[in-house]
């Protein structure tokens, strides 16, 4: 019997997109556990037993102080070694919205921009996600141009349509050098764009992100983070104008991301 693709969806106080993220992976054939961080910290559950770590959206610890900061510190300080080993062993990490904010503040994304090593707890934060230029939380659908290299986005098409729902999604880098490295390394995976894939102003770029960046990967492409929600375009009926489309059921444009993760694990991490 084939071994399961095992996904851990991490939760803590204020996580709230865990159910639909778990559902997306399950529909793609994975065995999914929703795990509270206390169970990882106490050693009751081991990160090493899983192939994919998903950090879902939400308002962990209320986004108090700043979005994602407290969970990022917990990951780095309490689970740093486990996470380092997880990433080094070729496994996958996906951070959506608040999960992306967490990965960024822990330095896991973009991770080291040069050299041999992958992420470890000493890697500093080099990019940030800060308050939207509009000054408010906004839920709206945006078109994204897909670029760069990531196992998560293979075959995704030139552009995709996902919703964003955040107040702190403006992508910024520490300096120009970081931005340059991200581009050169192929780490920029999603950019907000117009209907025809061109560069776009507000509200197409909903937060004022630098270089319109909506999502980035680490240098391996196995760790991906993005502000928009692919799990909210997992089926067609989530599309805001699905009643205008010919297609009235089936998968939406975000499903491919979850399928890619599961397929990658089957092809590369599970030896049958």
């Amino acid at each position: 019997m084939a071994q399961d693709v095992r996904v851990i969806v991490l939760r803590t106080a204020g996580t709230n997109c865990d159910g639909e993220t778990a559902y997306a992976f399950e529909r793609c054939g994975a065995a999914v556990d929703l795990v509270h961080i206390n169970r990882l910290s106490s050693g009751e559950v081991s990160l090493g037993d899983y192939h994919i770590l998903a950090v879902p959206g939400g308002f962990t610890y209320g986004d108090d102080i700043m979005s994602g900061r407290i969970l990022a510190n917990e990951l780095r300080l309490n689970l740093g070694k486990d996470l380092e080993a997880f990433i080094a062993s070729g496994k996958l990490v996906l951070g959506i919205c608040n999960g992306f904010q967490v990965l960024v503040r822990a330095g896991i994304l973009p991770g080291p921009l040069s050299g041999q090593s992958l992420w470890h707890p000493g890697v500093p934060q080099t990019v940030s996600l800060t308050h939207n230029d509009s000054g408010k939380f906004e839920d709206r659908w945006v078109r994204l141009k897909v670029s760069g290299v990531s196992v998560w986005t293979e075959g995704l098409g030139d552009t995709v349509l996902f919703p964003v729902a955040h107040a702190e999604g403006k992508f910024m880098t520490r300096d120009d050098a970081v931005l340059r490295s991200l581009r050169e390394n192929g780490q920029v995976i999603f950019r907000y764009c117009s209907e025809d894939g061109q560069s776009v102003a507000y509200p197409g770029n909903p937060n004022g992100s630098m270089d319109h960046i909506a999502g980035i990967a680490d240098r391996t492409g196995r760790v991906l983070g993005l502000m928009p929600h692919p799990e909210r375009h997992f089926v067609v009926t989530q599309h805001p104008a699905w009643t205008r489309l010919g297609k009235k059921s089936g998968y939406g444009e975000g499903a491919r991301i979850f399928q890619n993760g599961v397929t990658y694990v089957k092809d590369n991490l599970i030896k049958n």
Binding site: C17, E138, P163, R232, T237, A241
Partner: peptide, 21 residues
């Protein structure tokens, strides 16, 4: 738009619809 009207993933008819959403 300031309310998250799609969290939990069950949204079918949103409060805003149509060609321009």
């Amino acid at each position: 738009r300031q309310y998250d009207h799609e969290v939990q993933g069950g949204s079918v008819i949103k409060p805003l619809c149509g060609a321009g959403f």
